[in-house]
Design a protein around this nucleic acid. Structure first.
Length: 391
RNA sequence: GCUGGGAUAGCGAAGUGGUCAAACGCAUUAGACUGUAAAUCUAACGGCUUACGCCUUCGUAGGUUCGAGUCCUACUCCCAGCA
């Protein structure tokens, strides 16, 4: 992976750049649609390309469960298996430690247990016991053939105590070191033709490994975590453990702090973020990469996001709005979601009334049109942000 | 016309002598959702009230009973079978 900065804003930390990956180039800032199980829900690969997506996400935990990384590997990697054929970033399953912990399976067992060595998961599909170590998670992602991979980390909720967050920072640093060592030895063995113990797992390409900075909303923990990770000289740095319940102001405060700590010449990835405004604000604080389920999930829940562009003299200002297509006020509304939008739903002449009707009926077409609209809106925002670097 | 069955909140449907303003669906309304166990989840949903609570209901009208959505009688309407 290679990251090149193309331009830098004079007034903010916003910058544009290019990331070269084995599957192609990505312009930054970038928004990465989420395709947890290997598909961006309801959207075909060619549609993603038409919308302007450059890279999509997959999740190691989910893909390990089904269909299994071995199958994906046999098809030449996820990008070939799912016909996206472009760059892919995989998450480690670290977020599932957060989202599945505290939740109970049907027979009352906790789904997640963390030890120093790794994480014990109970499959949310069948309750079976799984044990993930940082090494295993790297192996899974190598087999999946992702271009950018994430180390197993511990992502605590915003309600976690300081001591829990300290523990998460310690484990995340330790696991990152193990991930890096393991990845390097796997690649070295592969290049020198040495069969590893996982001979059935094929290394599709040499992926980039990011560090994931944790530390909640504690500046000292964030700083410590970042500095320890920077010592490892990674390909990029993720900011994890945000947008997990804290306020936007608290989140941006941490992003701002890390903007001053993380190396400028490496991409920064704000994991799981966020709303249109979150992304807009965070790019001004030097964040290059984003992913979020909101545009796709909210579409399935009837919400359409709107990007309001107002041009006054030389300034283009951005505002954001969301409308709930399920509300009966749209029952007879002949307007599209947004008359200025060029997405397939808006430019295709679909009225709010029809989209309201489809949403009420839970019709797949309605879900798809809103998904296309929302992804288009997110990707449009990113393009607008890239233009703002001149300022 | 005869014989059965039935009429419960916007709709469907539980309930068969006391704990019934009435389970459960659906519809409606509101809310949530940020590295996807999420085309999901939560709440409200007779009237009045912030709430405690109070009031009015189970086709209509009577009756039995301490007490009736539940039992009896008549009537109205609906459904099925037979003529």
């Amino acid at each position: 992976m290679k990251f090149t900065i193309l331009s830098q804003s004079k007034s903010t930390s916003l910058r544009t750049g290019i990331i070269k990956t084995p599957h192609g180039e990505i312009q930054t800032p970038v928004f990465m649609p989420v395709g947890t199980v290997g598909a961006v829900k309801t959207v075909a690969p060619w549609e993603l390309r038409e919308l302007g997506a450059e890279i999509i996400l997959g999740n190691s935990y989910h893909l390990y469960l089904r269909p299994g990384e071995k199958i994906i590997s046999e098809f030449g990697g996820l990008a070939e298996f799912n016909r996206w054929e472009g760059p892919i970033l995989t998450d480690s399953g670290g977020f599932q430690i957060f989202s599945l912990s505290g939740k109970k399976s049907q027979n009352g067992n906790s789904l997640v247990k963390i030890t120093d060595d790794g994480v014990e998961f109970r499959s949310h599909l069948d309750g079976s016991k799984l044990f993930f170590t940082p090494e295993k998670v790297v192996d899974i992602q190598l087999a999946i053939g992702a271009d950018i991979i994430m180390p197993l980390d511990v992502c605590p909720s915003s309600k976690a105590s300081r001591s829990e967050i300290e523990k998460a920072v310690g484990l995340s640093i330790n696991w990152l070191k193990r991930s890096k060592n393991h990845l390097e030895s796997r690649i070295m063995n592969h290049e020198s033709g040495i069969k590893t113990h996982n001979s059935e797992l094929i290394i599709q390409n040499s992926p980039a490994l990011f560090g994931i900075v944790q530390g909640g909303i504690y500046p000292d923990l964030r700083q410590f975590c970042a500095e320890e990770m920077i010592k490892l000289n990674l390909d990029g740095y993720s900011i994890g453990g945000l947008a997990v319940g804290e306020s936007q102001a608290e989140m941006l405060e941490i992003v701002k702090l890390l903007d001053g700590i993380l190396p400028k010449d490496k991409p920064r990835y704000l994991m799981g973020v966020g709303t249109l405004d979150d992304i807009y604000q965070a790019t001004k604080l030097g964040v290059d990469m984003f992913d979020c389920v909101l545009p796709t999930r909210m579409a399935r829940h009837g919400i359409a996001y709107i990007l309001l562009l107002t041009q006054s003299s030389k300034l283009r200002t951005l505002n954001f709005k969301e409308i709930n297509m399920l509300k009966s006020v749209h029952r007879a509304d002949k307007n599209p979601i947004d008359k200025n939008c060029q997405c397939p739903a808006c430019s295709g002449g679909f009225s709010r009334a029809y989209l309201h009707h489809l949403a009420k009926e839970k019709e797949i077409l309605g879900i798809r049109l809103l998904t296309l609209h929302n992804l288009f809106t997110y990707l449009k925002l990113i393009k607008e942000i890239r233009l703002k670097v001149a300022a």
